[in-house]
Amino acid sequence: MPNDNSGRRRFLGRVLATSGSLLLAGCDRLSQTEWFPNVLSSAEKLTQAAQKLIVPRNAMAQEFSPADISPEFRSNGTSNPSNPVYQALAANGFKDYQLRISGLVEHPAVYSLAELKALPSRSQITRHDCVEGWSAIGKWQGVQLSQLLQRAQPLASARYAVFYCFDPMDAQGTTYYYESIDLDEAYHPQTLLAYALNDAPLPVKNGAPIRLRVERQLGYKMAKYVMEIKLVDSFSDIAGGKGGYWEDRGYEWFAGI
């Protein structure tokens, strides 16, 4: 009886080890297919629908006290765009910077940095959650995107705000960072075009002169170095068609989780 059992256990051990490596190999093979990641990403739709259902449209992200501010606000991704146009603007303290509002709006507009700073502003101490897993807390000041949208008057057909950025994401300078959010998020009171971080002008490494804050989503939604905001009815014909630089590389468009 004991011998019989130990033989069975050895056999079971081998079965477990083999099925373990088969499981991993199988998962990797599924990961490589076209269809399986698509099946997996149907969970994204479920997550988005669930969050839209239970989180009120204007529910506020948590705000913190000055004591919680991170000593250093980490820079991730591009820290200094190699784009010569951007470099020239930065060299001149962004005096010639212009933010363009375009696309499906009644009144397309162009704002200088000084004009943006002259508008009523909002300050908020919020937590920035990177998709990688880390968080940092900073104080942001900027103009609410909702103000600019109220002035621009989006057409009824507008469904998304697309943010075009200065930072090239490859050596050739053919691919640029971009992002998109829906109008619920665009009109949210905490959605800012931020020009100040921790009571100082926004540093280049954190997205100067203007970076987007979308406090209920992950960090990659919050485009840095914003140069144009375009209202569209669909982003399927922009770049990879998934609504953002990282989305085109497999990350979720709905980054609320």
Partner: peptide, 20 residues
């Protein structure tokens, strides 16, 4: 790890699907 190679985007898809 799933997937085996360093691939955060796909790992998140696996994770949230099976979390549901």
């Amino acid at each position: 790890t799933v997937p085996g190679a360093q691939w955060l985007a796909l790992a998140r898809r696996w994770h949230f699907s099976f979390a549901w």
